[in-house]
Design a protein around this nucleic acid. Structure first.
Lengths: 209, 209
DNA sequence: TAGATTGTTAATCGATTAACAATC
DNA sequence: TAGATTGTTAATCGATTAACAATC
């Protein structure tokens, strides 16, 4: 990647993709950046700028085909092909995510879940098998798995990341409320419910914004 | 609020709070901004600047007492007193959140859950009762509830927000992957798993950052 | 007091937006 | 062609960081 992509641009790409899908479902085939911007509440210049970072592939511009644009964004993100992921920790949250079909619709495939609880091992949840965490090495071997969803207790996160990293997995979606200082080589995205609630609370009290 | 608080400052306040709690658990009573910054990987000047927006209350500065600082941040966020919240939609994700005790530890109290499923109504999950969504009006009346967690299917989100807004609830934590253009008066924080996964995927492919 | 650490100003850096020539 | 819409440059706006006098 030649130029540095702003962090917010990446987040917006995801928003664009979702909205383009929606538009396509509604049978719309083209949008201009101004129409699109209007729709999602983002400045049209922002949209054009965001896309220009990857400008090679949509030379015709937004005004043209939604399908083309969608595929372009998918390619940027790496979702032009289905991504295999695994889930570690089949507690309440783990189960909820296994049952959350939106992830699948978006081009991800959870191909296995792992837990240490004998009660859970062997079960099948929404077509995903639960395996013994001890056997994860042999399961992963040879499969193309780039990232893992971690729905484990906080105290097991670090250990698990280190283990999976050795097995070649470098991307993590983490739900535990902890700060980790990890190798630059590891990509981690944190989802923190209490933190989100706190941010919400703040804006509720100071809602001049 | 005199000056405008940067969005990122608010997010960081939440991080600060979590880390201060951690430090306190470890028996530490004071930190300097440089130590603290080192610990959480944030520039000390950034921390001082963030806190200076609310400068009135920690005149002594970070170098002083963690307890004092913690209470200061709690007060800014509005967590100096327990915040009552409700949860709408007791599906898999709803259940997971009800069972997620971290929220409680952080100063929130989920005082009730609501669903329309007769099978669910009347059940108690982790000490939270599940009530008939139709009776929500009378339940809420007179109680001090400022925000709601929405774990409903996407197509029911808008309707539910409008309803709750009329009942005086203006803050929402939303898990459905939709973009809503709502009244400025409403505060909404979105948690979108697929979007988080997409951001993760992007950085995995372009991990020069 | 002397040293450490702050709060805040000024400088830097990055992200957003307006404007417009180039393109379809 | 004329009108619309782009991609990109330049201007603006905001957020981060370095530096330092003021404070404990």
């Amino acid at each position: 990647m030649e130029k540095k992509i702003p962090k917010n641009t990446v987040k917006r790409l995801s928003v664009y993709l979702r909205c383009l899908n929606k538009l396509q479902e509604d049978g719309i085939e083209n949008v201009s950046s101004s129409e699109f911007g209007e729709l999602i509440g983002i400045n049209p210049a922002q949209i054009r700028k965001d896309l220009s970072y990857f400008g090679e592939f949509v030379r015709q511009g937004l005004g043209d085909n939604i399908e083309k644009l969608k595929n372009g964004i998918k390619k940027i993100i790496g979702l032009n092909e289905t991504q295999n992921i695994i889930l570690i920790g089949v507690g309440n949250l783990g189960k909820a995510i296994l049952n959350y079909n939106v992830i699948t619709k978006r081009g991800f495939s959870i191909i296995a879940a792992f837990d240490k609880d004998p009660e859970m091992i062997g079960k099948i949840i929404n077509n995903v098998g639960v395996f013994d965490i001890k056997k994860i090495d042999q399961f992963i071997a040879g499969k193309n798995i780039k990232c893992a969803i971690l729905t484990l207790p906080p105290d097991q996160i670090r250990k698990t990341i280190e283990k999976l990293y050795q097995l070649g997995i470098k991307g993590f979606l983490n739900f535990a409320p902890i700060s980790l200082n990890l190798s630059k080589d590891i990509q981690i995205v944190n989802v923190d419910l209490s933190s989100s609630l706190e941010v919400l609370m703040f804006y509720l009290r100071n809602n001049s914004e």
